[in-house]
Simulated scan of single mutants.
Amino acid sequence: AWNVLALDGSNWQRIDLFNFQTDIEGRVVENISKRCGGFLRQLSLRGCLGVGDSSLKTFAQNCRNIEHLNLNGCTKITDSTCYSLSRFCSKLKHLDLTSCVAITNSSLKGLSEGCRNLEHLNLSWCDQITKDGIEALVKGCSGLKALFLRGCTQLEDEALKHIQNHCHELVILNLQSCTQISDEGIVKICRGCHRLQSLCVSGCSNLTDASLTALGLNCPRLK
Score class of each variant (00 low, 15 high):
H120E: 11
L123T: 05
D157I: 02
K109W: 09
T98L: 10
G140D: 02
W125Q: 04
G114R: 13
L118Y: 06
K131N: 04
S99P: 00
G110F: 12
G114W: 11
E113K: 13
L123R: 05
A146Y: 10
S142K: 12
L121Q: 10
G133A: 05
H120T: 14
L108F: 03
K131Q: 04
N105E: 03
L160D: 01
L118S: 07
C141T: 10
K109L: 14
K145D: 04
E119Q: 12
D157P: 01
G140A: 07
L111S: 07
Q128N: 13
K131L: 05
L155M: 02
K139V: 06
R116F: 08
G151C: 08
L155P: 07
E135C: 11
L160P: 00
C100Q: 00
C126I: 00
L144W: 02
C152G: 09
I103P: 02
L147H: 13
I129L: 01
C100N: 00
G143T: 10
S142N: 12
G133L: 05
E119C: 04
R150H: 12
I134Q: 04
L121S: 09
F148K: 10
T130S: 06
D132V: 04
I134Y: 08
G110H: 15
L160T: 01
T98V: 11
T153K: 15
T98F: 12
G114A: 14
A102K: 15
E158W: 01
D127L: 06
L123D: 01
S99Q: 09
S107M: 07
E135V: 02
D127G: 10
E119M: 08
T104V: 06
